[in-house]
């Protein structure tokens, strides 16, 4: 395996660990994943509604 591939995989692994740790600590501190997904879904639906109901 090339060195660049090794470096890439190591970086990806580190980022995954960092993301998982952040998520875990955030949940322990009272963060809400469900609220985040709900807010994201509502934002997307609102954007699409405004897009398809757009009229001159």
């Amino acid at each position: 395996m090339k060195t660049a591939n090794k470096v890439f995989l190591i970086v990806i692994a580190c980022l995954l660990i960092l993301g998982a740790l952040s998520l875990a600590v955030g949940i322990m501190l009272g963060g809400s994943v469900g609220a985040l997904f709900t807010a994201a879904r509502d934002a997307i639906v609102g954007f699409l509604d405004s897009f398809f109901t757009f009229s001159l």
Partner: peptide, 20 residues
Amino acid sequence: GFPGLGNLLVILGLGILAVT
């Protein structure tokens, strides 16, 4: 809508996981 350190870390973690 997402106050507190917990929500910030959740957003940060999910974003990092998705991009990675």
